[in-house]
């Protein structure tokens, strides 16, 4: 693998995003979402920490859209425009292309999330003049990492779809359907399906809790807030430890409690990345 080619392609990919007006829109939307999900709860709550002011539910539902917005057009756009064919006339391999594109997109996604979290929480701290402890900064950092991993899942799904569809609009529709099904409505669809099939209405039934593991939002919600689901009308169950936002427990205790969710949040993007990589290598990407 030629690292120089990868870096050039990644830089070119990032450059395309930075000069696209859509980048500023995505950056602004993400910042506003995180800021709004923090500022308003902070003004209402009597909680004692900045962490408890952050509305993770809101973030968990909208952050996947950022990943989708960055990834849904990555490959299909290049293929339709014919630039992929042009690129392949140069001494670069397919794996260089897909790796460079993914690295560039990940870089932009990471920047958007880090920027949004820093600006939003920083502004809230300035506005309200709260005292911030090191522990809170530590957990805001962890929130940023998990939010990035969570967004990466949808980024790689969108890139995967982008490789396999013929038009951008088709890619966008598939991605929106996946976002609605796995993020927003997964819990309520699951409860309905289980009720129809088994007539179980209990939210903490074993079957529902097992099937919830199929949704990325479940693992994100568990790790950050200790909740089973953050979707609309979802499963309203809460763990004894409220995830990484529960300052009563040390990081070690929380890792021990939610290690499965954390591992899934780390492994899922890797699996999707590998799948995307292989698909791109095997796919006929010419026009």
């Amino acid at each position: 693998m030629n690292n120089k080619n990868i870096f050039v392609i990644a830089k070119k990919e990032a450059n395309d995003y930075l000069h696209d007006s859509g980048f500023l829109i995505i950056l602004s939307i993400c910042t506003v979402i995180i800021f709004a999900s923090t500022y308003i709860p902070a003004s209402m709550t009597t909680a004692t920490t900045v962490l408890s002011s952050i509305n993770v539910k809101m973030i968990s539902q909208f952050i996947p859209l950022i990943g989708i917005a960055l990834g849904f057009n990555t490959v299909v756009k290049e293929r339709i425009s014919g630039s992929l064919n042009v690129l392949l006339t140069h001494p670069v391999y397919r794996d260089n292309i897909i790796t460079g594109k993914i690295v560039g997109t990940i870089l932009v996604l990471a920047f958007i999330i880090v920027f949004s979290v820093l600006v939003s929480t920083g502004a809230v701290i300035i506005f309200y003049g709260r005292a911030v402890e090191y522990m809170e900064l530590e957990r805001i950092f962890i929130l940023t990492i998990f939010t990035f991993l969570y967004a990466c899942i949808y980024l790689f799904i969108s890139v995967f779809i982008s490789i396999n569809v013929k038009t951008s609009s088709e890619a966008l529709i598939y991605n929106i359907i996946i976002w609605l099904a796995t993020c927003v409505l997964f819990g309520s669809l699951l409860k309905t399906t289980v009720f129809i099939l088994t007539e179980q209405t209990s939210v903490d039934s074993v079957l529902i809790m097992q099937l919830l593991n199929l949704s990325p939002i479940h693992h994100y919600a568990q790790a950050i807030g200790g909740s089973a689901d953050y979707g609309f009308g979802g499963v309203n169950a809460k763990a004894a430890i409220y995830g990484f936002f529960d300052t009563r427990y040390t990081l070690t205790q929380i890792f021990n409690e939610f290690w499965v969710n954390i591992v899934i949040l780390i492994i899922t993007p890797i699996i999707l990345l590998v799948a995307t990589f292989i698909t791109f290598l095997r796919k006929d990407i010419t026009l």
């Binding site: 820093l118 929480t121 920083g122 701290i125």
Partner: peptide
């Protein structure tokens, strides 16, 4: 209002802009 909190908040915003 916490002075340290204010400095940290400003620091976070400044870091994000530098980034």
């Amino acid at each position: 209002k916490s002075d340290s909190g204010g400095f940290i908040g400003i620091g976070m915003v400044v870091v994000s802009i530098l980034l």
